[in-house]
Design a protein around this nucleic acid. Structure first.
Lengths: 181, 207
DNA sequence: GCTTTAAAAAGTAATAT
DNA sequence: ATATTACTTTTCAAAGC
């Protein structure tokens, strides 16, 4: 039985051109903000796939907030279409790569965070944050575990890793349970 | 050669000056927070260890000193929050926290999460509460821990709520505002923890 | 390291009603 | 006294300071 794991955020990057005129792009795009003093990238928010895109002068583009890679691709295609209509030189079907994904799931039990914090790969400072930080090296992801049993997995490059990571942690927690029984 | 010796002397001069500055900074913060001698000594040992391992590079002496003191307080079971230390340090809470994580990892010091019980003596004393209240608060916290009512919650907030409840039960009531002020949390937090503790531990707090 | 973007988790804080 | 809103933690790319 595969645990239900939801992808709640996907961060993707790609290249849509070479030398983008961000001032012009900011005028052409609807919800665009461009404040080079504050940040070198242009910020653009889309509502249909609800995402935020960052476009840089170099032509590099980041898309965050998508629920899937395809949502991010749809959003990027929309921005490309708008920029092309404005007469800008844009790459048509850029290859997008997933940089990071965030997933949520549940342990199915209420863990004892104090016990888990004895593991060397963890950090738990309730004074600062209620979640325990669990760093896995293979796959290289970071898992946040809460007292409620809710879990957040981040640093993901592919969805399969979420299942691999989650099962590895479940196994470790079972062993710990016996140890502290 | 002579130059080499001169350089060594200079380096050692600088090291000694830096160490002296660090130790005076430890003393300054420690006395402002009223920390006992053993904590200062423990912090000094941690600081020297950090120097020997070259952990100061890229970091401020004051930041490492503050982090060493924070760690020493926890080791000695007389915790201060990062906010309390940041208040009397020139370094902000975020930097002290990250330096603490760095040196504790590099010096192989793994500290258990702060136990709310460790805050009770100090808070109870500042509230001029009798030993019976302190004992009662501690027993409440132990029961709370067994039922998982402390995991994920801020240690100071849980400790404050336990003291508030104990003070009422022992007939030496302090207001939520008074307890909140010494614990450095808000009244809302005390109320939330209070509800949780009294409900799950079946504590009757009739006023 | 910082700046900006998104998102979840649960606790705490500040401010509004 | 409760309801919002906002910040804490983690992850990642981008260009520049």
């Amino acid at each position: 039985m595969e645990p239900e794991i939801k992808i709640v955020n996907v961060v993707v990057s790609t290249q849509i051109g070479t030398d983008i005129d961000l001032e012009y792009a900011a005028d052409v795009l609807d919800n665009a903000e461009y404040e080079p003093e504050q940040f070198p990238g242009l910020v653009c928010r889309l509502s249909d796939p609800k995402v935020a895109l960052l476009i840089f002068r170099s032509g590099k583009l980041n898309c965050t907030g998508a629920k899937s890679k395809s949502d991010a691709e749809i959003a990027i295609k929309k921005i490309i279409a708008e920029l092309k209509e404005a007469g800008m030189e844009i790459i048509d079907n850029p290859e997008v790569s997933i940089q990071n994904m965030v997933a949520t799931t549940e342990l199915g039990m209420e863990p004892n965070l104090d016990d888990i914090s004895t593991l060397e790969c963890t950090e738990y400072e309730p004074e600062q944050f209620p979640g325990l930080v669990y760093r896995l090296s293979d796959p290289k992801v970071v898992v946040l575990i809460f007292g409620s049993g809710k879990v957040v997995i981040t640093g993901l490059k592919k969805i399969d890793d979420a299942y691999t990571a989650f099962n590895k942690i479940l196994t470790t927690l079972k062993e710990l349970e016996e140890e502290f029984y | 050669r002579l130059r080499k010796w001169q350089r060594r002397i200079r380096v050692s001069d600088a090291s000694e000056r830096n160490l002296a500055f660090a130790l005076s900074e430890l003393d300054r913060i420690a006395s402002k927070l009223g920390l006992p001698r053993n904590v200062r000594e423990n912090a000094a040992v941690l600081y020297r260890g950090a120097v020997e391992k070259g952990l100061i590079r890229g970091r401020s002496i004051e930041g490492v000193a503050a982090a060493a003191l924070y760690a020493a307080c926890r080791r000695c079971k007389v915790p201060r929050t990062l906010d309390e230390i940041a208040e009397v340090s020139r370094v902000d809470r975020k930097e002290i926290g990250r330096t603490y994580r760095f040196i504790s990892r590099e010096l192989n010091i793994r500290l258990a999460p702060t136990n709310p019980v460790d805050y009770v003596p100090r808070f109870a004393s500042e509230l001029k509460l009798p030993g019976e209240v302190e004992s009662k608060a501690i027993s409440i916290l132990k029961d709370a821990g067994k039922k998982g009512l402390t995991s994920g919650r801020g240690p100071t907030g849980v400790a404050a709520a336990a003291i508030y409840i104990a003070s009422v039960l022992q007939g030496t009531r302090r207001t939520q505002r008074e307890v909140a002020d010494v614990a450095g949390v808000t009244e809302v937090t005390i109320r939330n923890r209070y509800k949780e503790l009294t409900e799950h531990l079946d504590i009757d707090v009739t006023l």
